[in-house]
């Protein structure tokens, strides 16, 4: 098994993660390495970000009574309630059966409500069922470590993509991870700065 064939071992994966997290850009972007579990296959990289969106709020407060509170207070700006924020979480795990990194992600509202797959498709402006991109291999899965539902980009086509990527040249573990993440992540709203490749 070699990386130019599109696969990596778990040791190569954890080594790549450890180097990745040391990269100054990874610190700026607030990537975290979750490696407290010593179980095989349970180390992973995680990134949480918040973004503004133009999608209107789901308006879940329609039926809630307005409460009377003494909040009259000239010292406060109130500009934010009409801005909708979404939290994105990206976790990079290792698939023991496919020998490749796997991307798990969730998009949720500020209340903690997860967006359904249909809502995520809409958010990305995709037409369900007709698109042929990697979006077709996205579905809900139990996060292998957190045991919470995450959207998972199924790794079945990963190795083929990565094989194309290196065309017979053996990459370093980090190059492998970063190339994969920039290709796959890019389709799901995870933009990696070019600074990562420059550093590796």
């Amino acid at each position: 098994m070699t990386m130019q064939e599109g696969r990596m071992s778990y040791e190569q994966f954890t080594f790549a993660c450890a180097n990745f997290i040391k990269c100054p850009q990874a610190q700026i972007d607030s990537w975290r390495l979750e490696d407290e579990s010593h179980e095989f296959g349970e180390s992973f990289l995680s990134l949480s970000t918040i973004r503004q969106t133009s999608v209107p709020s789901s308006g879940t407060d329609a039926d809630v009574t307005v409460c009377t509170v003494e909040e009259s207070d000239a010292g406060k700006t109130d500009n934010s309630f009409n801005m909708k924020l979404l939290q994105y979480r990206f976790d990079v795990l290792y698939s023991v059966s496919h020998c490749v990194p796997v991307l798990y992600f969730t998009i949720s509202e500020t209340s903690g409500r997860l967006l359904s797959l249909d809502e995520v498709w809409t958010l990305f402006g995709l037409q369900a069922e007709t698109d042929t991109s990697l979006w077709n291999v996205v579905s809900w899965q139990d996060h292998p470590v957190l045991h919470m539902p995450f959207l998972c980009v199924h790794p079945c086509s990963n190795w083929a993509i990565m094989k194309e990527c290196f065309q017979g040249k053996e990459p370093t573990c980090e190059q492998f991870l970063i190339s994969w993440l920039s290709f796959v992540g890019n389709q799901f709203g995870l933009k990696l700065s070019p600074a990562y490749l420059l550093n590796s």
Binding site: C67, E71, D78, F81, S111, R113
Partner: peptide, 12 residues
């Protein structure tokens, strides 16, 4: 404030 800009609880 809740999503409607009013003072009141939110629900999820």
């Amino acid at each position: 404030r809740n999503d409607k800009g009013a003072f009141g609880p939110k629900h999820v």
